[in-house]
Write a protein that binds this DNA or RNA. Sequence first.
DNA 1: CTTTGTATACGTGTATACATCTTAGCAGAT
DNA 2: ATCTGCTAAGATGTATACACGTATACAAAG
Lengths: 203, 203
Amino acid sequence: MIAAELRSDLMAGGLPPGAELSQVVLAERFGVSRIPVRDALRILAGEGLVDIQPNRGAKAISLTPREVREIYDLRVLLECDCLRRAAANMTPGALEEIDRIRRKSDLDASTPGWAEGDWAFHQALYLPAGRLRQLAMIETLRRTCRLFVSAYATMPKKKPRWLDDHRAILQHLEAGETDRAVAVLRSHLEAAAEYLLARMDAG
Amino acid sequence: MIAAELRSDLMAGGLPPGAELSQVVLAERFGVSRIPVRDALRILAGEGLVDIQPNRGAKAISLTPREVREIYDLRVLLECDCLRRAAANMTPGALEEIDRIRRKSDLDASTPGWAEGDWAFHQALYLPAGRLRQLAMIETLRRTCRLFVSAYATMPKKKPRWLDDHRAILQHLEAGETDRAVAVLRSHLEAAAEYLLARMDAG
DNA sequence: CTTTGTATACGTGTATACATCTTAGCAGAT
DNA sequence: ATCTGCTAAGATGTATACACGTATACAAAG
């Protein structure tokens, strides 16, 4: 629970990248001893969200533009492959379900919780691939990016572009044109990378 | 240190897949309290080597053939991409260094520590890509496989095939034929997957 | 004989206390 | 004035003790 709480704080931007995460401070804040805090920090370290250095404390991760670029390259690699595999196993029922989730995510596109809907869509999209481990790796990479999206990009106004991309991906899948769907996904991710990198250069 | 020790034990097969890892027995075995053991288990859980279930203890991971297949597919995806990027940045000096490591790994090919040399070669091969995070992900996946190689495959006798592959990859790189080098790497990994899966079906 | 409830034992989760390390601050020498 | 060395404060690492949850064994009811 403490790990989940900390994760939310990191996502929301309450703990900016590079912030020092003192065990005692967090323990007092949550009203528990340091042991559960240590466990939580180790869990988050395993997810790559915090960086623990022996005898020197934990920090919220801080990425260089070069690392952000690498992470998005990895996402392109893993997500495009996952979509391709999912397309091979896609059923009409699954497509219907994904579209339902897409429409629901349209609603809270302007709320602070827009990212949850975005991830729900992509998750549903990749699920038919039957690759749980790959999906977990993708989620980890997405969360790592989220930290920086929250920190640098206040609230994307280019949202419509994203929603259009989602719809386009689905339409191409329904038409059986996997390559086109994958191409849209790739450009979808590249656009997000460019947006974030531009913001990092600015701020 | 305890995490490293446990990792070695898991690799060497002393702790077979699915083995229950009790905090108390491990604490007694290492002559320390349970706290450092908890930390070590969380570290290994972050690396995906052990599975921690709340209030129910930790176990060495146990993979189904389907999951092994997925992991090798991920390795093909990540390692081939990494090699391609490395080939683009490869210098004559780097090739010389890799070949030096390859020749050294030839020597302890029949010893129990053959896997270290194997990994050293691949690591040197991918390093010029300048993708540290991707390299870390690959290492994690390789370690996960290693657990099962140790458990099911006593000592591969097909070693010569692997060493030949290593040499072939280098030769293709020296010739500037990246696609061929990547093709050999892919078949290299596929062969390892087939070998392990066959052993799992048998045992 | 199967099933359900309970009690006991075992293991994990957490709090407190102590040991160790890092680091900031300051005094002194060059 | 800068650098070296020491000292003290704060944080992390670890050990011990206790609280809680889970699982197994046994007993009793259906």
